[in-house]
């Protein structure tokens, strides 16, 4: 990349990457003044934050980015389901769930084409 292109890339990083993310953190600091951690509003915003994250998780699985899109959608969904089952069956272990989900994705992609 040229020096000019490189500079533009950093400018884009700050304007389209850093600021649109950081502004929510700053607003969070502003809104959090005088809030109690057990207050009803905090319970509600935690529910909204969890639901937004859940939306990102589901969207990354269904509308997959990059090379992940070459793995068939049913394989991706089945891999998430298998990961979830492993998590529930093996002492609610994050590690077991991730390992099972990844294993299922790789095997599924190899068997059903990727």
């Amino acid at each position: 990349m040229s020096t000019h292109g490189e500079l533009a890339a950093y400018l884009a990083l700050v304007l389209a990457g850093f600021l649109p993310s950081e502004v929510w953190r700053w607003l969070g600091v502003a809104f959090a003044r005088g809030l109690d951690e057990d207050s009803e509003i905090v319970v509600w915003v935690r529910a909204v934050a969890t639901a937004i994250l859940a939306g990102v998780i589901a969207k990354l699985t269904i509308f997959a980015p990059g090379v992940l899109a070459t793995v068939p959608t049913p394989v991706r969904l089945a891999a998430v389901a298998i990961g979830f089952l492993a998590f529930m069956l093996i002492r609610r272990s994050v590690f077991a769930g991730v390992l099972a989900g990844e294993g299922a994705l790789i095997i599924g992609a190899l068997v059903f084409g990727g």
Binding site: V23, W24, G28, V29, L53
Partner: peptide, 17 residues
């Protein structure tokens, strides 16, 4: 990017107290 990061706002609000 801004939309995907909205979730940071309630996270910060829940964490800071």
């Amino acid at each position: 990017v801004g939309l995907s990061s909205v979730r940071l706002l309630p996270m910060v609000v829940a964490l800071l107290p």
